[in-house]
């Protein structure tokens, strides 16, 4: 069985494509969340190995969620993503307790695997 994944994004079409992509590459997508509150609940209950986390969400942003997950104890690996490019968030990404950032335009299972090592 592959690594378990939680996809956090408020756009259903993106979640559907990301799920298809990750599952095709052997990841096990165990849940999806459309906002920060549901994401934190899902992590506490399901303990996924990886969280694919959109930066711009309706309630809190991805950076705050990553901080809270890190503060909660053993945190899953977090990969941030966004339709904006890296230059928009360079400082915040560097300061966040995350594995890394992949723009949505470049998102692939291979790129994620590279970050996770």
């Amino acid at each position: 069985m592959g690594r378990t994944v939680l996809i956090v994004d408020d756009h259903p079409s993106f979640r559907a494509s990301a799920k298809r992509m990750l599952e095709a590459d052997g990841y096990d997508v165990i849940a999806e969340a459309a906002d920060g509150a549901h994401a934190i609940d899902a992590v506490r209950v399901l303990r996924p190995d990886l969280v694919l986390l959109d930066i711009r969400l309706p309630d809190v942003d991805g950076f705050q969620i990553a901080q809270r997950l890190a503060a909660d104890g053993p945190a899953p690996a977090v990969v941030l993503t966004s339709s904006h490019d890296r230059s928009d968030f360079a400082r915040e990404i560097a300061d966040s307790p995350v594995q890394g950032f992949i723009p949505k335009s470049e998102l692939s299972a291979g790129a994620i695997s590279l970050l996770l090592g």
Binding site: H11, A16, S17, R20, M21, A24, S83, S105, L107, S108
Partner: peptide, 22 residues
């Protein structure tokens, strides 16, 4: 633009990359 067209184009990109690989 962000919520609509941009997200669809992102999903489109993912699908096209996967199609290319397969």
């Amino acid at each position: 633009l962000h919520d609509g067209t941009q997200q669809r184009l992102m999903a489109l990109g993912i699908n096209l990359r996967m199609a290319r690989d397969r």
